[in-house]
Amino acid sequence: MILQDEAGLRRTLETMADEIARAAPPGAPVGIVGIRRRGEVLARRLRAMLEARGVALHHGALDITLYRDDLSTIGPNAMLRGTEIAFDVRDHWIVLVDDVLYTGRSVRAALDALVDLGRPRAIRLAVLVDRGWRELPIHADFVGLKVETTAHQIIKVKVHEVDGEDGIECVESE
């Protein structure tokens, strides 16, 4: 089932950019950091939208592979892409971006990875889709789309840069 097409995804991101622009504390340096890979793509798009709204900000990408609590069970499939954050995170108001918020474990890993780089002034979480089923006490500050799901469903966020097309889908797992 298609939840959003290309135009819908763009409108959702525009709305999120509005909310982030309103929440950004005036005067503080702002950073936007995407979790690799699709979060990174979304963060790059949000950055352009925020700059169009007059928000100056730094941009980075976070690889959380080494911080995952299931690293010992994902096996040799783990592919390290590397963290690329060229700015000093200290004192920045940072928006962490991921595509889907599910158990909260990726975000937990990302928070650990981020604070190892320095001490940000604050970290906020922006997700395109919140599908529920949290296993950790983590919530998002900016949510594009809230979806009620069953445990057997998979939320697929597709972006041009990785998947060749834009959209959000909900599929039943076999």
């Binding site: 592979t65 390290l80 892409r81 590397g82 963290t83 650990d112 190892d116 780089l117 320095g118």
Partner: peptide, 18 residues
């Protein structure tokens, strides 16, 4: 993979919990 690890040595906390 080593390319990904090179960046770790540039951090303020030069350590990952892998």
């Amino acid at each position: 993979t080593a390319e990904g690890f090179k960046e770790v040595s540039t951090r303020s906390v030069k350590k990952v919990p892998a």
